[in-house]
Design a protein around this nucleic acid. Structure first.
Length: 308
DNA sequence: AAGACGTGGAT
DNA sequence: TATCCAAGTCT
């Protein structure tokens, strides 16, 4: 165990990316924002949006003081815009229940909107130096290969995986934080899902998956459908709403923007993209009511807009 | 507890 | 061009 810790944290010390939320004086709010943005989203896409968010909202109170729609608009094209809504709700809860300071315990963090077991542990560890069992997709994959000898972790997080991760965690607080960050980084940069760079791996010699001859996955991960789905329509509608500076009447979503007098610029661009999907009226209806139900849109003056 | 939920770069 | 998949959460 000591051997793995030295090798992996040593590798991390010289290879780690210089990410702004890893800056010692980034602050817990910056870490929380980064963790929410990084859910299912690559670092390179988060970077510029995170910078803008922290410049505009340096504290939870700043974000909580603005309409939720502003959070959604400034979320840009990061994807899963409900995360912006939840982050706004989390900021509000932090102001109301925690005096505007991001809480520092796993339990309090877990109670915040949009914060699940991974994010609660990550913020407690990376922002406050606490010893937490952080388990994300990178760490799961490293453990699966290095220790379990399988190509991929199970489809869903298991209790056995949590026990394994807990057993690997160094006792010392600071060492545990480094370990969590290092294993995550190893999974992100070297022990990747596709085409792992085993030649660059600091623990290649100890890898159970390698020793077993790199057996293929025992199951096929089911891919997410996209074309023709409600999600695709929702995404296209949200792209329109983010650009609109006034409520958008429902009929605009149904007709070719050119017929409505829209030039192929400004709001005409996402409007045209939506129309190009050629989705059935009932699907558009389903997508719109879904957005309303989720609080990502609201009706005002007979049109749709981001929540005020 | 399986499925919904965005987006775009890489392969 | 089609598929994969990235620091998950919620219901």
């Amino acid at each position: 165990m000591e051997f793995l810790h030295r090798r992996i944290t040593g590798w991390f010390a010289e290879t780690a990316r210089d990410l702004p939320w890893r800056d010692p004086d980034c602050g817990a709010w910056g870490v929380l924002v980064s963790e929410i943005m990084l859910q299912q989203t690559p670092v390179v896409r988060v970077l510029p949006v995170w910078e803008e968010w922290l410049k505009r909202w340096p504290s939870p109170a700043g974000l909580a003081g603005e309409p939720a729609g502003e959070a959604v608009r400034n979320w840009g094209r990061l994807g899963y815009p409900r995360r912006a809504l939840r982050l706004h709700a989390a900021a509000t809860a932090i102001v109301e229940n925690h005096n505007g300071r991001v809480p520092d315990t796993y339990t309090e963090l877990l109670a915040l909107p949009g914060v699940g077991s991974y994010t609660a542990a990550a913020v407690a560890a990376f922002a406050y130096g606490r010893r937490e069992t952080v388990v994300d997709t990178n760490i799961r994959r490293v453990h699966a290969r290095l220790v379990a000898g399988t190509a991929l972790p199970a489809p869903a997080l298991t209790a056995a995986e949590m026990r394994l991760a807990a057993s690997l965690l160094p006792d010392d607080d600071a060492a545990s934080v480094r370990w969590n960050a290092a294993v995550m980084e190893l999974g992100a940069l070297v022990c990747t899902a596709r085409a792992p760079k085993c030649a660059d791996c600091p623990v290649m010699d100890s890898c159970a998956w390698r020793a077993a001859g790199e057996p293929p996955p025992s199951y096929v991960p089911k891919g997410q459908a996209w074309h023709g789905t409600d999600r695709q329509v929702r995404g296209a509608v949200m792209a329109v709403l983010r650009l609109a500076d006034a409520p958008v009447p429902a009929e605009m979503f149904l007709q070719p923007p050119a017929d409505l007098g829209f030039a192929p610029e400004g709001i005409g661009v996402p409007l045209a993209a939506l129309h190009r999907l050629n989705s059935a009226p009932e699907q558009l209806e389903r997508a719109m009511s879904g957005l309303l139900a989720d609080g990502l849109a609201e009706i005002h003056d007979g049109g749709y807009r981001l929540p005020a």
